Amino acid sequence: MIILNLWGAHHDPRRWDEPEKFNPGRFIDGKGMFDEGGPSRRQCIGEQLARKEVFIFFTHLLHHFRFERADNEQFDFEGVFGITHSPKPYMMRAIVRL
């Protein structure tokens, strides 16, 4: 079994300026367009289908529910480090739209 250190690759100072800083602008090319990683980027054959399914799923939820932060719940963007870097769990309230 091989487990890649994706966190290390995504925070490599030889590849990224200020790797600890969230900066989506680093993926914008000189023309202001999103740079998907160049011509050598590998891509899952089902990526487009998965993107459409996720879009339909979340738009359906947003159409039927309003989401709010639960009482006294504070968002923490530090995350939890494991095999992947995941967000910490937190409580939300889903309110049915009438």
Rank of each mutant, 00 (worst) to 15 (best):
G25Y: 07
L61P: 00
G8R: 09
F81N: 12
F65V: 05
F81K: 12
R97E: 00
H63Q: 05
K52H: 12
W7H: 15
V80L: 14
A70S: 09
I3M: 02
G25H: 12
G37E: 05
I45L: 14
W16L: 09
A9S: 06
G82Q: 05
R42F: 14
T59M: 01
D71M: 05
C44H: 09
D29F: 01
P24A: 04
G82D: 07
A94G: 01
D35Q: 05
R69N: 11
W16Y: 15
P87S: 05
R69K: 13
E18W: 08
G46L: 12
K88C: 03
E78L: 05
T59K: 06
G25A: 10
F57K: 04
I83Q: 06
D35G: 09
S86D: 00
H85R: 04
E47D: 07
P24H: 05
A50K: 09
L49F: 15
T59G: 00
I83V: 12
K88I: 06
E78Y: 10
D12C: 08
A50I: 10
R93V: 08
R14L: 12
I83D: 02
I95M: 07
A50Y: 09
P24S: 09
F22H: 08
R97C: 00
I56F: 11
W16M: 02
P89L: 02
A9K: 13
F77I: 04
D17A: 13
E20F: 13
R51P: 03
G32Q: 02
W7V: 10
F67C: 01
G30F: 13
L98H: 07
E47I: 13
G25C: 09
H63G: 00
V80R: 07
E53I: 02
Q43C: 15
N72T: 07
S40E: 12
D35L: 07
E18Y: 15
I3W: 13
M92R: 02
V54S: 04
F81E: 14
F57W: 03
F57P: 01
P89W: 06
H85A: 01
F22W: 11
A94N: 00
T59R: 05
W7N: 06
D35F: 15
Q43P: 03
K31N: 14
G38H: 09
F58E: 03
M92P: 00
D71C: 02
R69T: 10
M91I: 02
A50F: 09
E78F: 04
K21I: 13
H60C: 09
S86N: 08
Q48A: 14
H11L: 01
G79I: 03
